[in-house]
Nucleic acid binder design. Structure first.
Length: 641
RNA sequence: GCCAACGUAGCUCAGUGGUAGAGCAGCUGUUUCGUAAACAGCAGGUCGACAGUUCAAUCCUGUCCGUUGGCUCCA
């Protein structure tokens, strides 16, 4: 393979116009694919005179880079950009101390210990300084030194010392320098050859970040940037980000009249009639699945005596994020989770193995006093509803229950058009309840079930809940940030704390296992992700308004209202736009509201008893008898297509 | 909770140390129109809240509240 980022091998396809031709300039673009022919301009010298550049055709051979090689290339470039950033910051802010600067998805960051946080103006200055360094096109030079020698070199930087102290004394470490050796930084290694190999870069933002990701540590100042192999690639990336910002569910929620927020109830959405339609459709759909998969639904209180939360362990673990109310000298807690209530329901009757598995769904509203900095639109709220259910079963039933849930989850994800999700299997954390034997068995079952689905998943060791291992489904939002939606979690703790039992076949008393599970997770979060996926263009079955009837002139209004009434009686959500706007404006309004169908009525339609059907995609389906339109829409709703 | 930025009409946003403007939306009227914006008029704001500086604060300073981007957390 030709090293990417260097002049590729060139085969000329014909005689050169001059034997004195200088080496042709290769466009400073790195191609990740194969480029065979290219027209290239190059200048030639005739004696001392520069002759007009002439196009020639030549073959340039690039080998395709595998995705891994592309990633490696970009990572090295972005890490190199982080070095250049560090150099610029060191120059402009001599008091700053360097820490780490890794490549990340689509870019890089560097964490600095500085006396004052960076301002947006600082970022501009730093960016200009970086440009100089890249223009100078100096070489990245790595050198290996012993760890102890390195400790001496960074003796004024406590952060680098801490890094080195984590490295065995007999190991060598890498220092990388550029700018002709005037700047040097301890790092993991992996760079471009020269600073000029960074073809496009941009600093995006600055934010505080704890040293080593621990809030007990000092807060450093992190600068985020992006870097690309070509200006075009960067432009495309920035364009995509801009487009993604337009799909922001908070903006769309406002624009489409779905929901809003108000400081009177921070981080707690108000759902308008249209947003409520969508949520209710979602709930109806889950209830259909519940019938199919054998769930029962229960309804439980909102507020419980604190005793319950002490018993469940929430009081000890999550008191800080719970809401409490004092009434008549007694303390009550607003529920942050449904599980203790589910345990109460289980305890209300005695159970035998014949009752198991018992699957109890609960759409109770939960309140969690999330820390102020973590809330975000519908993605992280303080008031929410989950499609929550608890399955009480025997240990031997865990496998089939998880398997059946994953099947239901896959069915649901498909209906909503989510295909870009991933699963994560979280295994035992250090702090946990239950015996090692229980964890061994449970983790083995989860692994076996996950393997059986044939889906890719990652394993997160140590990330399980203290009460049991879990499988989470993550789905990205418009900006690519991942959010947990579906989840299935085993719980060994709840049955113990509530002393849950069932009578086994042999008459002995046994402990059931509890499985917590949700497909949407929080309905609020799910709706947020869904809105961003669809840019607010809901499929017919979810659309708050499924069709708008558009009279062309007000002499068509009566007929339009008849059509509207007919569609409503058929169970469709319809509006008649009888305002005195022009038809074009009515169409535009419906279009902006992402209404799936517009039914236009003029003289011809009134005479024929039909409507002219226009889709949200701008397609004219022509005039159709009203009855046919009703059938068409009803079928589409029934199919959830 | 921590770091930073932001907060002006229902929405999107201008603006100034001398008490505020646009577009859209709303209301009223005119227009009756064939697939993405007809025209005119009217109305709408304790400039997030509270303190301070000042003859005078929407503007400067501080505190608080909220939002956004990160960090941390996420049962």
């Amino acid at each position: 393979m030709q090293p990417v980022g260097r002049a590729p091998h060139v085969d000329y396809l014909g005689a050169l116009p001059s034997t004195k031709a200088t080496r042709p300039r290769i466009p400073s673009i790195v191609y990740f694919g194969t480029l065979i022919f290219s027209r290239v301009l190059f200048a030639q010298r005739d004696g001392s005179r520069l002759v007009r550049p002439e196009p020639i055709t030549m073959a340039i051979k690039f080998k395709d880079l595998s995705p891994e090689e592309q990633q490696d290339y970009r990572d090295r470039m972005r890490h190199s950009a982080a070095h250049v950033l560090a150099e610029a910051v060191t120059k402009l802010f001599p008091e700053s101390q360097l820490t780490i600067g890794p490549p990340i998805k689509d870019g890089f960051y560097y964490d600095f210990a500085v006396p004052e946080p960076f301002t947006p103006d600082d970022l501009k200055k730093i960016e200009l300084e970086m440009r100089e360094s890249i223009r100078a096109n100096t070489e990245f030079v790595e050198r290996k030194v012993s760890r102890d020698e390195a400790l001496e070199l960074v003796k004024d930087n406590p952060y680098k010392i801490e890094i080195l102290e984590g490295i065995p004394a007999d190991e060598q470490v890498t220092f990388c320098s550029h700018a002709n050796g005037t700047f040097e930084d301890l790092c993991r290694g992996g760079h471009m050859e020269r600073t000029g190999d960074i073809k496009a870069y941009k600093l995006l933002s600055a934010a505080g970040a704890y040293w080593r990701g621990d809030e007990k540590n000092a807060m450093l100042q992190r600068i985020y940037g992006t870097a690309w192999e070509s200006r075009d690639a960067q432009k495309e990336y920035l364009k995509l980000r801009e487009e993604a910002e337009k799909r922001d569910h908070r903006k769309l929620g406002r624009a489409l009249g779905l929901y809003f927020f108000d400081p009177i109830a921070p981080a707690s959405p108000f759902f308008l009639p249209k947003g409520t339609v969508v949520l209710n459709q979602m709930i109806d759909y889950v209830k259909e699945l519940y019938v199919k998969y054998g769930y029962d639904e229960v309804m439980t209180p909102q507020i419980f005596n604190t005793e319950l939360w002490k018993r469940s362990g929430h009081y000890d673990n999550y008191r800080e994020s719970m809401y409490f109310i004092d009434v008549d000298d007694r303390e009550f807690g607003v529920k942050p989770m449904n599980c203790p209530a589910a345990a109460m329901v289980y305890l209300a009757e005695s159970h035998s193995y014949r009752d198991l598995p018992m699957r109890l769904a609960d759409f109770g509203r939960l309140h969690r006093n999330e820390r102020s900095g973590v809330t975000q639109g519908l993605f992280r709220v303080r008031s929410m509803v989950q499609d929550d259910a608890h399955i009480f079963c025997t240990f031997d039933q865990i496998g089939t229950e998880i398997d059946s849930f994953l099947q239901m989850l896959s069915e649901s994800s498909q209906v909503f058009g989510f295909d870009n999700y991933r699963f994560e299997l979280s295994l035992r954390p250090e702090k946990r309840v239950g015996t090692d034997e229980m964890w061994d068995r449970a983790e083995a079952v989860l692994t076996e079930v996950m393997d059986g689905t044939g889906r890719e998943y990652t394993v997160a060791s140590g990330e399980g809940a203290f009460y049991g291992p879990k499988i989470d489904q993550f789905v990205p939002d418009a900006l690519g940030r991942e959010w947990q939606l579906g989840t299935v979690q085993l719980d060994f703790s709840l049955p113990e704390r509530f002393d849950l039992e069932y009578t086994a076949e042999d008459g002995t008393r046994q402990r059931p296992v509890v499985i917590h599970r949700a497909m949407y997770g929080s309905l609020e979060r799910f709706l947020g992700v869904l809105v961003e996926h669809l840019s607010g263009a809901f499929p017919l079955w979810l659309a708050p308004v499924q069709a708008v009837v558009v009279p062309i002139a007000d002499r068509h209004n009566d007929f339009c209202h008849e059509v509207g009434t007919g569609l409503k009686e058929a169970g469709l959500r319809v509006e008649v736009n009888d305002s005195n706007d022009r038809m074009n404006a009515k169409i535009r309004q419906a279009q902006l509201q992402k209404v799936p169908y517009m039914l236009v009525v003029g003289d011809r339609e009134v005479d024929a008893g039909s409507v002219a059907v226009r889709t949200r995609a701008g397609k004219d389906l022509g005039a159709k008898p009203v009855g046919d339109v009703v059938d068409m829409l009803l079928k589409q709703v029934a199919d959830r297509s």
